[in-house]
Write a protein that binds this DNA or RNA. Structure first.
Length: 764
DNA sequence: GTGGAACACCTTTTT
DNA sequence: GGTGTTCCAC
């Protein structure tokens, strides 16, 4: 038996050994998906029939591509090769298309030296187009237009190819799309959507090109197929069209990017789109305990349309899922710190624990509390290194050097750092460019003869033009990337300005610029230099976050960012109806969470290997509004026997009746540092990893299934706005405990009334 | 041309 | 509530 199938279970082995033709692998969470893909590729190569360079593997993220390459290198040394020819082609959809487009630029109708615009650049370009067309950005938000353009490209619609029956709004959108398209070509720029869209167009319209490229790849493999959009689906089909050996791997239950155009149908309907396709399901989970899997099953089983499957494991039940009821987000942060301390005492490391939230805004309160408590943490996601303003500024200089037509980058840096070329002068220049039908840089170069500009401005512009031209000469003369980068920050005084500012933020930004130069130096030293254009492409397509080493830290991130990762302990915070599942601008009240939110919860739960901790609050302030909260429906869907419901001391104190509000606040976490709450926890903490079945001195366990803490009632607090069917909106004066609970409410003109809490709803 | 103050915005996010 | 963006006064 060949080594590629050793240690694989039967369905995994079947997928690896599958000879050819269409194959779809439904790979549940933690079922060894990456293993199957890499082993399958290794098998294809090792069997001797397929040379590595005739295999194309496509992923969604660079991280996944790098990981695949590394694992393959271990399985079949030498096969993965370098980036160049000869090796296996592993890359993201976008990097793969960028490569193919540059190789076949003339046939695809693009300039081979195109610059790639990210979402931010794209919106800057749209803003320009709006101004040019005299359209109000308030009426036509650039974001919405970007959405429209991206959706059009996803559906392979060029400008002017929208549906016939369109409303007034779309007519304007189409006009912007058309003008945007023109401006982009003039700037020699492609946006992310273009990379896929242009490649698919070229392949579908040029038979020779299709025959050539599709003929090149004997096998095409696609990871995370549930995340593909329509254009990507067509791309994959076109590229695998000659030999028909297409293997797609994914999990419809982990499709969480529907909002940005991913189409679950691509995997769900694969049998239909590829008749005769082999279907394999991987249902054995190697990651989580049974309790965690049952909790995850509880939420995913209610999704209406899904491929039938259920994860199983031969692991033990494991520790129960814990659900902490907290007073508010501050109390929740406090409980989190306590839980982390307890986990550390029972033997886990900080790096074993991840805290997941639905929206980034939740992280702030948690971060504040962690800082006070001296718990080191790192945040994954958020603003990435290459997206930081200072990094983009320096890169924009290099992009202008590489592509004089790149107006978006040019306008970004023409007055950064401030060099006295202001809005009025720039407007004149832009206008001149529009009239002459040239790029902005050409008009800057011609500024000396522009009658609309003052003498001082002309002098400053001349200085800027000279700077760029000198950089351009150096680039042409073979300067390395880091030399160019250094020249930019030296000649512009960019770093000097930051250093002079002498604030913490300026220091951090200066540090990022230095880091960027460091990254450039590293690239210059590499064996296969990629050149300025290669560098700029890599930087735009690879949004690798700045790596802050292997220090032992708690990890904080959104559930989306956690997809594909696993941690021994996972804490999911904010499990409240409205937050997770998130409900925004819902028109009708449907108590059922959306399927995508369900899948998101499923992804969150299945990240955990050993322990899953959930929390929710009775009230939460988010985006400046405080609301009373009900528990998330997801919490009720976890089997009762698998979840231990706990109540924070602050909630206990608040609901004890008659407890003064001030005291409640104290417990809620405004006290400093390591306090006696932690000491209390100590006494109840268990020292072994599986020891959470017993009581905790610190947290109250509720009285069992018949009396769950289960908040069928939201937590009402003094001062909270509430709504009553008859009396309208009022303010809570007093909460009188009791069962059923009663609340005194001031309804203004309707007077003050004491009402059963059941008849009240929290109001925005 | 620059800087402060009012203003709108605010899921999730890779490429 | 916090932040990025635009607008207007200097």
């Amino acid at each position: 038996m060949s080594s590629e199938v050793e240690g694989l279970n039967p369905p995994q082995r079947q997928a690896v050994l599958h000879p050819g033709g269409a194959l779809v692998v439904f790979a549940g969470a933690g079922s060894g998906k990456t293993r199957v893909i890499t082993h399958r590729i290794a098998h294809l190569i090792a069997s001797g029939s397929v040379p590595p360079h005739r295999i194309l593997a496509v992923t969604f993220t660079n991280k996944a591509a790098v990981e695949m390459r590394e694992r393959l290198e271990r399985l079949v040394p030498g096969a993965a090769g370098g980036r160049g020819r000869g090796g296996l082609a592993v890359g993201t959809f976008h990097a793969t298309c960028a490569r193919l487009l540059r190789e076949n630029a003339d046939r695809a109708g693009v300039d081979p030296r195109f610059t790639i615009y990210d979402a931010e650049d794209q919106q800057a370009m749209i803003r320009r187009v709006l101004r040019q067309l005299g359209l109000d950005p308030k009426r036509y938000p650039p974001k919405a237009i970007a959405g429209y353009i991206n959706a059009s490209k996803r559906h392979l619609r060029g400008p002017g190819e929208g549906d016939a029956a369109r409303g007034y709004m779309d007519e304007a959108f189409e006009r912007v799309y058309a003008a945007y398209d023109e401006r982009m070509s003039a700037a020699r720029a492609l946006d992310f959507g273009d990379l896929i869209y242009r490649m698919v167009r070229a392949l579908e319209q040029d038979d020779d090109l299709r025959a050539e490229l599709a003929g090149r790849y004997l096998h095409v493999l696609v990871d995370e197929f549930q995340d593909t959009n329509h254009a990507q689906f067509r791309l994959v089909d076109a590229l695998s069209g000659v030999h028909g050996n297409l293997c797609v791997v994914g999990d419809d239950d982990q499709s969480i990017y529907g909002w940005r155009g991913a189409d679950r149908r691509n995997i769900l309907d694969f049998r239909g789109s590829h008749p005769g396709a082999t279907v394999i399901k991987l249902e054995q989970n190697y990651r989580s305990t049974r309790r965690i899997l049952r909790a995850a099953h509880g939420v995913i089983a209610r999704v209406s349309e899904r491929e039938a499957k259920e994860l199983w494991t031969d692991k033990d039940d494991g520790a129960p899922v814990r659900d902490l009821l907290c007073l508010d987000e501050r109390d929740e942060a406090e409980m989190l710190v306590q839980a982390v301390r307890e986990l550390l005492r029972s033997g886990w490391a900080l790096s074993d624990i991840a805290v997941l939230y639905r929206v980034h805004a939740q992280s702030r309160v948690i971060e504040q509390r962690l800082r006070v408590a001296n718990v080191p943490y790192r945040i994954v996601g958020g603003l990435r290194f290459f997206d930081r303003a200072e990094v983009k500024d320096v890169l924009a200089y290099l992009r202008v050097v590489a592509n004089p037509g790149d107006d978006v980058s040019l306008l970004r840096i023409v007055n950064v750092p401030t060099r006295g070329i202001g809005k009025v002068s720039l407007d004149r220049i832009i206008e001149a460019a529009a009239r002459a039908g040239t790029g902005v840089f050409a008009q800057l170069a011609a500024a000396q003869t522009n009658p609309g500009l003052g003498k001082a401005v002309k002098r400053r512009i001349a200085g800027f033009v000279e700077l760029i031209e000198r950089l351009r000469e150096h680039a042409a003369g073979g300067a390395t990337i880091s030399e160019l980068g250094r020249e930019v920050v030296d000649r512009t005084g960019y770093l000097r300005d930051l250093d002079e500012e002498d604030t913490a933020e300026a220091d951090a930004r200066a540090q990022n610029v230095r880091e960027l130069i460091g990254a450039m130096e590293e690239l210059d030293r590499a064996d296969d230099p990629i050149g300025l254009e290669g560098f700029l492409e890599a930087v735009t397509l690879d949004v690798r976050a700045a790596d802050d080493g292997a220090r032992d830290r708690l990890t904080l991130m959104s559930v989306h960012a956690a997809k594909g990762l696993e941690f021994p302990v996972v804490v999911v915070v904010g499990l409240e109806d409205g937050l997770f599942p998130l409900r925004t601008g819902e028109t009708s009240f449907d108590p059922a969470p959306s399927d995508e939110e369900r899948r998101l919860a499923y992804v969150a739960f299945t990240r955990a290997k050993e322990q899953l901790v959930l929390s929710h609050a009775q009230a939460r302030t988010l985006f400046g509004q405080t609301r009373g909260c009900w528990a998330s429906p997801f919490l009720r869907e976890i089997p009762d026997g698998d979840v231990q419901r706990l109540v924070s001391p602050a909630v206990r104190a608040a609901s004890a009746g008659g407890a003064p509000f001030g005291w409640r606040h104290r417990v809620g976490g405004s006290r400093s540092g390591r306090d006696d709450v932690g000491a209390e926890w100590d006494e109840g903490a268990h020292r072994d990893r599986r020891g959470h079945e017993g009581d905790d001195a610190y947290l109250d366990t509720s009285e069992g299934c018949d009396a769950p803490h289960d908040d069928d009632l939201p937590g009402f607090r003094q001062g909270m706005a509430v709504h009553h069917k008859k009396f309208g909106v009022g303010r809570v004066l007093r909460v009188d405990g009791g069962a059923p609970a009663k609340v005194s409410v001031d309804f203004g003109s309707a007077g003050t009334r004491t009402i059963f809490a059941d008849y009240l709803e929290p109001s925005a």
